[in-house]
């Protein structure tokens, strides 16, 4: 990567992350699911940012088929913890392009998420890392890692799309 900032790429990445956030905040489940590649990994670690998800428990560690199951569960109408669905508003910022490698762009960002559900209002803060892959339809997510800053502590149910 050159030291020059590629503003066009940054704008493109930014638009993609904002769109992803909008789909999540709007609980547009299948539209969000369509953003993933076939070899996708969706990872929300517990107990730190750098555990080995193959050996240690994570909050979410989904391959593509399990992402599909997660989405299908919402559409049954009996995913009780999301019926009614959480009301969500999130702010995405600190977007930084970490690496460009052929079709793939590695991106870091932060998010602050305000969730309102039957229990209470809850604020979640995350440090995210994406591996975006360029396809004919635009960027797709090959990997998304969501590090909840309080993931070493007991957490209330987190059943919306984070």
């Amino acid at each position: 990567m050159s030291s020059q900032i590629d503003l066009a790429l940054l704008a493109e990445v930014q638009q993609f992350l904002y769109m992803e956030a909008r789909l999540q905040d709007s609980n547009l489940y299948s539209e969000w699911e369509a953003l993933w590649t076939d070899d996708a990994i969706y990872w929300v670690p517990a107990n730190g940012a750098d555990i080995d998800p193959e050996e240690q428990m994570s909050i979410i560690y989904d391959n593509r088929s399990r992402i599909g199951l997660r989405i299908k569960q919402f559409y049954t109408g009996k995913r009780h913890t999301q019926a009614p669905a959480s009301s969500l508003g999130r702010v995405v910022s600190n977007i930084e392009i970490l690496d460009v490698n052929g079709d793939e762009v590695k991106v870091a960002s932060n998010a602050m998420i305000f969730e309102c559900n039957l229990r209470a209002d809850t604020v979640w803060a995350t440090r995210n890392e994406f591996l975006l892959r360029r396809t004919e339809e635009g960027f797709r997510m090959a990997r998304k890692k969501v590090v909840l800053v309080n993931n070493e502590k007991p957490l209330y149910t987190l059943s919306f799309l984070v």
Binding site: V44, E54, T157
Partner: peptide, 26 residues
């Protein structure tokens, strides 16, 4: 390995099962 994978899917704050149980608790 399968026990870990299946447990991760089922339980905890985002689990397919336990998020709904916990909803009932609350």
């Amino acid at each position: 390995r399968r026990l870990r994978q299946q447990t991760m899917g089922s339980v905890g704050p985002a689990g397919f099962l336990l998020a709904d149980d916990s909803e009932m608790y609350e």
